[in-house]
Design a protein around this nucleic acid. Structure first.
Lengths: 333, 333
DNA sequence: CTGAAAGCGCTAACAG
DNA sequence: CTGTTAGCGCTTTCAG
């Protein structure tokens, strides 16, 4: 492998000049630049990442902490990851993937100076990793909003608003016998922030409107969705509308509705909280509140890089949810 | 951050001793080791990854090239990634995720000495990246088998055998009116290796048995699966068995069968080629040939590390497919 | 606008 | 069993 000295020699300049040509951190005459650049090309020179990191304390790598739980919304995670990875490249950053949520991985990459910043998914309301993130030398961005961000940057869909919006949208259509098919007990058991916030919004809006409702947790699987629907129909006689916040259970819920000869939206309206791709892929295109995972991933990178590059401030950004009407909701009679 | 000199000073030894305590590359007396280790702990010392990479030309990072295409088997990819990430940690390696399949990323991480080895998914029969992988200084492992591996390591399920096995299993049950719902035209259009190999096996086995069959490509979506099933039923009057090699279309196929009042397995047997988790999550648990994505991911890491550590030889490993009987297949009358 | 040279923190000869 | 020291390849003062 060619080194910076090889390039310098070939171009008849010093190594620092080569370095500055590469970084653009000081003016270089056109002639010199040209010679250096052609030397770089002809030698196939690439800077050594480790050497660069050592000298500059910048790694050009972002850590993404993404627990790959089989039980949860695989497609959402994938979208996040895609958004992060793509956006990272626009800052000339690569992505180091950490799939465990234990603190040791975080400490390793942080203390080992392996990354410039950390992005963390699957945030819990009282996340045990936060104290570590707070005292790291690298900035971090939470994808999800804990109860106490402690000065960390956060970004997410406003899930509380989404919960409210789901309810108010159905109320607006005249439905009052409504229920929620929610996340798996596991997700809630971990106090996953987005799930709790959505429930909170859902509850507040129903209470405020004075309508009774039922919240049915569901396993994240086809059979789980079927069972959840059966339970809901048992618990809410005369049900006319359903909110579903559980991607994996969605097909089961929809399938079971059909089996029970309940036509969507004539008999039951369904509003899903899930990525558009999923909403559109159902047998009946679903009215939905989108989870803009790709966008959130991109924003997370932007926020991280603003802190890395410009020493920007921490902030919390909540994206406003929106209902997109498709074929699964209708006014009550 | 504490450096190795800080530790050496605190322990009253030289930096090389600290280094050797850490690497275990030469014997250290128990007493010295103890002092060094306690110094490490009390200072919270962590070696600087860049400095280490520079001095040792080992990064302890593996690159995973995993194009995150929305159209394809999201759950399979996730399993791979999980298998790779988990196994990597047992070798004290981290995982750098590359989500584009262009050559420049590969060159960047390779020439920049960012990684110790590369794992590459989504291999095509005549993959344009192979020439680059061949001349890299780091070893690489293909997850998938191209036509000409050119001395690279490969690992995958034996998809040709899987295609044959799917056919022979159904023939063994007495079915002769069989069809295949295959991958999306896009996947085949890219000449994705696993898809072509499966088709090859499927074709060979049917030809050899002298049975006619139909191969129906399908979009990777619920509606895609529905359409594919309709097309198949059109094209094969009296169909009694179906092989499905398209995870995302599976729910659509199954749903449409039910809509058309075709009972599985009484009227139509279904054999799926997909991860177990998916096969078990269907309304009717599917007889399937498992795609052991997690295992393949683990093996890929093992193969890569054997080349990194022991300078092992390149090899191609094909996992033998197996049918697991569940509720979706039955003998013909 | 360019060069010289001092590190960045660690590993691995080499020397004892 | 341990210490000394020469790099690894790059960035960035400091000097001109």
């Amino acid at each position: 492998m060619a080194t910076i000295s090889d390039v310098a020699e070939a171009a008849g300049v010093s190594t620092s000049t080569v370095s500055y040509v590469l970084s653009g951190k000081r003016p270089i005459s056109a002639a010199t630049r040209a010679r250096v650049e052609s030397a770089i090309v002809s030698l196939g020179y690439r800077p050594h990442a480790g050497a660069r990191a050592l000298a500059s304390s910048r790694t050009n790598v972002l850590a993404l902490v993404a627990p790959l739980r089989a039980d949860v919304n695989v497609s959402v995670i994938m979208e996040f990851v895609a958004g992060v990875a793509t956006r990272a490249r626009t800052y000339d950053q690569d992505v180091l993937l950490l799939t465990t949520d234990d603190v040791s991985s975080i400490e390793r990459v942080s203390s080992g100076s392996m990354v410039d910043a950390l992005l963390m998914m699957d945030i819990e309301t009282d996340d045990h990793r936060i104290p570590f993130l707070v005292q790291m030398k690298q900035p971090s961005v939470l994808i999800g909003v804990p109860d106490a961000p402690r000065g960390l940057s956060c970004v997410d869909l406003d899930f509380e608003a989404a919960g409210r919006l789901a309810v108010s949208h159905l109320l607006g259509l005249g439905h009052t016998k409504i229920a929620l098919v929610g996340p798996t007990p596991l997700v809630l058991g971990r106090h996953t922030a987005y799930a709790e916030r959505m429930l909170l919004g859902y509850r507040r809006e129903t209470e405020q409107a004075g309508v009774e409702t039922v919240i049915q947790l569901s396993e994240a699987s086809h059979p789980g969705g079927r069972d959840a629907l059966d339970a809901v129909l048992d618990r809410v006689p005369g049900l006319t509308a359903l909110v579903v916040h559980n991607e994996a259970a969605l097909p089961g819920v929809m399938g079971r509705l059909q089996e029970r000869c309940l036509v969507v939206p004539d008999d039951v309206s369904v509003l899903a909280l899930c990525p558009v791709t999923l909403a559109e892929a159902q047998p009946v295109p679903l009215t939905s509140i989108d989870i803009p995972a790709m966008t959130i991933g991109r924003l997370a990178v932007d926020m991280a890089m603003s802190r890395v590059l410009d020493d920007g401030l921490a902030e919390t950004r909540l994206l406003t949810p929106q209902v997109v009407e498709r074929a699964s909701t209708a006014p009550l009679d």
